[in-house]
Amino acid sequence: MISLAHYLAIGAILFALGMIGFLSRRNLIVLFICGEMMLLGVSLNFVAFSRFHGNMQGQIFTLFILTIAACEAGLALAFILLLYRRHKSLDISLWQEIHETGFPAPVDTEPLPTGDQEMIFPKLPVAGIEPASREEIIHA
């Protein structure tokens, strides 16, 4: 039997995971996903309480939360795009133009792991004519 406490535990876990991720992550997009996770944990709580108390207040809250989360995500993505064009990186520690005067900006010693530099693409099976090789395209 799934009781109220189960829902609340999952809601609290989601919220806490989101909070921890929000405080510890450096990748901007992961940061915002963590923010959304917090809101989803809250939504779960609201729905569970709505069922528990037998009224609609929690569910209506959830509708509004989803709308507002969408607004915030859209805005945040716009900002991320704007800043990505400038620095070509999603590392949050690069945005330090505004900081306290007289104090040096805190520098992270390790750079954000960017993954493998050489991307490995899946190989497609050969069909029909062999495509022109790279050198031929450059010479043409």
């Binding site: 919220f15 923010g35 809101l39 207040q57 809250f61 915030e72 945040a76 945005w95």
Partner: peptide, 30 residues
């Protein structure tokens, strides 16, 4: 742009906290 980004970051985290507070209030009083 940086000012905007910082505001969104902090703002969304704090609105999450506020919402969690609202759930706890509604939890008890319905």
């Amino acid at each position: 742009g940086e000012a905007g980004l910082k505001y969104v970051l902090f703002g969304s985290a704090v609105s999450g906290l506020t919402l969690y507070g609202i759930t706890l209030v509604i939890a008890q009083f319905g």
